[in-house]
Amino acid sequence: MPGLEDLYREIILDHYRTPRNRGELAPPAAHAVGHNPLCGDEIEVYLDVADGMVNDIKVGGQGCSISQSSASMMTQAVKGKSLEEVRALVHRFRSMMSIEELDESAAEVKLGDLEALQGVVKFPVRIKCAVLAWNTLTEALTQTAP
């Protein structure tokens, strides 16, 4: 059985204790809500996109340490990035969670702190916690102009 230290890395607990970029953005910011129907976790993503760049992002909702820290790290990783970079990051993250085959061209994308979530793969039931924020982000992206 994999050890809990693989899952609950210090940086994850840090983002869980002090989540970054929490809050809301007023319309016309894009807004999406994601649910994990199995455990009741809920994440809201607010996305302010202009000229193909993510100017600002905020998240709300509640959930376990994995879903919350993943959301918090995600906001830091996508803020100030171009939509293209954000989509590549989403893909890179999903492939780290082994739910998408890694596309060669995305192999270069840097995950930074998000690498700490690598251990989640050893706990398959928790993968859906880690990707909840990312799925919600993807949903919010569909609302922004192409």
Binding site: L4, L7, Y8, C39, D41, G63, C64, S65, I66, F123, R126, C129
Partner: peptide, 8 residues
């Protein structure tokens, strides 16, 4: 969080 609790 219950999910974390049940994991531990």
């Amino acid at each position: 969080h219950p999910h974390d609790l049940s994991q531990v």
